[in-house]
């Protein structure tokens, strides 16, 4: 199953980025064989609509779910419309997040758990 994990870096040992829409990298991983590709998140630079762009990107690359700590309202709505699941994970590496998804221990979110623009960088 293909999952997107918000990441601070481009490897499986990078720390998970808490923000989805404006995370630095998106790791698109196959949870069955741990193969993955790392995408620089272009949406991070957007003044508005970063959550929408990031959601489009991961959905249109075939992901069935997304892992991060916080999801804003536009990202949550877009992902829900596309039938992608949102999972909450914090304080660990991308590899640990994937293991947790496989083990089924992650909390699944029903909607946004952060306000709009919470992930804005200075």
């Amino acid at each position: 199953m293909k999952m997107a994990i918000a990441s601070t870096g481009e490897s499986l040992d990078s720390q998970v980025d808490p923000r989805f829409g404006r995370c630095h990298w998106l790791i698109l991983a196959d949870t069955d064989d741990m193969s993955f590709e790392a995408l620089k998140n272009r949406a991070a630079a957007a003044g508005h609509g970063a959550g929408v762009e990031a959601a489009q990107m991961v959905a249109n690359m075939g992901c069935r779910g997304v892992v991060a700590s916080t999801f804003g309202p536009n990202a949550a709505h877009a992902l829900a419309q596309g039938g992608l699941a949102m999972y909450r994970f914090s304080g660990g590496t991308v590899r640990e997040a994937i293991e947790a998804v496989k083990a089924g221990t992650l909390e699944q979110l029903n909607g946004a758990n952060a306000a709009a623009h919470s992930g804005d960088r200075e």
Partner: peptide, 12 residues
Amino acid sequence: ASAIAKIRDVVV
């Protein structure tokens, strides 16, 4: 402006 998006088979 990211005001219209195609998420898999749904336009939002």
